[in-house]
Simulated scan of single mutants.
Amino acid sequence: MIPFNKPFLTGKEVHYMYQAVYAGKLSGNGVFTKKCQSFFEEKYGFKKALMTTSCTDALEMAAILCDIKPGDEVIVPSYTFVSSALAFVRQGAHIVFADSCSDDPNIDTDKIESLVTEKTKVIVPVHYAGVACDMDKIMKVAEKYNLLVVEDAAQAIDSYYRNRPLGSIGHLAAFSFHETKNIISGEGGLLAINEERFIRRAEIIWEKGTNRSEFFRGEVNKYGWVDTGSSFLPSETVSAFLYAQLENLDMIQERRKAIWRQYYEGLKQLEEAGFIHLPVLPEYATNNAHMFYLVCNSLDERTGLIKYLKDNGILSVFHYLSLHLSNYYTSHYEYIPTLTQCDKYADCLVRLPMFYELKNEDVEYIIDKIRSYFVYKC
Rank of each mutant, 00 (worst) to 15 (best):
G274Q: 07
G274S: 09
G274C: 13
F275T: 04
F275Y: 15
I276F: 10
H277T: 15
H277S: 15
H277V: 13
L278G: 00
P279G: 02
P279M: 03
L281R: 12
P282K: 02
P282V: 02
P282Y: 03
E283K: 11
E283F: 13
E283M: 11
Y284W: 15
Y284H: 13
A285I: 01
A285Q: 00
A285Y: 00
A285P: 00
T286C: 09
N287T: 03
N287E: 09
N288D: 02
N288P: 11
N288V: 00
A289F: 02
H290G: 01
H290R: 08
M291Q: 11
M291Y: 04
F292Y: 13
Y293D: 06
Y293C: 12
Y293A: 12
L294A: 00
L294D: 01
L294E: 04
V295R: 07
C296K: 01
C296Q: 04
N297S: 09
N297P: 01
N297M: 03
N297F: 01
N297Q: 13
S298T: 10
S298H: 04
S298M: 04
S298A: 10
S298Q: 02
L299S: 07
L299K: 14
D300G: 00
D300L: 07
D300C: 00
D300R: 06
E301I: 06
E301V: 05
E301C: 05
E301G: 03
R302A: 15
R302Y: 03
R302T: 08
T303K: 15
T303Y: 08
T303R: 15
G304T: 06
G304A: 07
G304C: 02
L305E: 02
L305C: 02
I306A: 12
I306Y: 00
I306E: 08
K307Y: 09
K307A: 14
K307T: 13
L309F: 05
L309A: 06
K310R: 14
K310W: 12
D311Y: 08
D311W: 06
N312Y: 12
N312P: 14
G313V: 00
G313T: 01
G313E: 00
G313R: 00
I314H: 08
L315F: 14
S316K: 01
S316E: 04
S316N: 05
S316V: 07
V317M: 13
V317E: 14
F318E: 13
H319L: 15
Y320R: 05
Y320A: 09
L321F: 10
L321K: 13
L321Q: 10
L321M: 11
S322T: 10
S322V: 05
L323G: 00
L323Y: 04
L323M: 13
L323N: 08
L323P: 03
L325W: 05
L325T: 12
S326W: 01
S326L: 09
S326N: 08
S326E: 08
N327L: 12
N327C: 07
N327Y: 15
N327K: 15
Y328G: 05
